[in-house]
């Protein structure tokens, strides 16, 4: 049996904050460590004692919790509603938010100038005054959650973890009466 990787504390530190470890980010090495041989199962077993379950998606890892207080779930749902709007905003752009896509804040702001629909969506998402600040705010939010990664002051890269968002959004079904259901 292999030893538990030495990066385990670092991995735990990241994932326990509700963030993701994506293959295409600066934490790609950690992703490789988790993916290496039987490390995933070992880490999963290790972290299970802490109440977290190590999960993996397409090129990303994250923690899930089976028992969570309702308040936390509600907060998550609220947060997710916001993410849906943000995803809708990015999906309305010329450049869709696929993993690896790089966005420049100024470029997005410029596109918003020329696209009224996009502008309206952005206005609904942020209360900042300037267009650039609005974009930076929502990109920053996504970066905080690990869906984006800031590469430099102006550039954000879409992480593989974006698949998680996509997957969850795909699971949402809307009935004929307009009521949403989570399958």
């Amino acid at each position: 049996m292999n030893a538990i990787p030495k990066q385990a504390p670092e991995i735990f530190g990241i994932l326990s904050r509700g963030q993701f470890i994506s293959a295409n980010g600066s934490r790609g090495k950690l992703y490789d460590v988790i993916s290496f041989e039987d490390n995933f199962n070992q880490l999963r077993e290790l972290f299970a004692h802490t109440g977290y379950s190590l999960e993996h998606g397409h090129n990303y890892y994250y923690f899930s919790q089976s028992d969570e207080p309702n308040l936390s779930i509600e907060k998550k749902i609220e947060q997710f509603a916001y993410y849906i709007d943000v995803m809708d905003f990015f999906s309305s752009m010329d450049q869709k938010p696929t993993a690896g896509t790089r966005y420049r804040v100024t470029q997005i702001a410029e596109e918003c100038f020329s696209n009224e629909r996009l502008k309206q969506k952005l206005l609904a998402l942020s209360r900042r005054e300037k267009m650039v600040d609005k974009v930076a705010e929502i990109a920053g939010d996504l970066a905080l959650s690990g869906f984006f990664e800031q590469e430099d002051e102006d550039t954000y890269k879409v992480m593989d973890a974006i698949h998680y968002l996509e997957q969850v959004i795909t699971l949402i079904t809307i009935d004929d009466d307009g009521e949403q259901k989570n399958s």
Partner: peptide, 16 residues
């Protein structure tokens, strides 16, 4: 669309 996704994903794996 697929091509774009693949290119973005491929280029995204490398540093800027």
């Amino acid at each position: 669309g697929k091509f774009r996704e693949n290119v973005s994903e491929f280029a995204g794996r490398f540093r800027t």
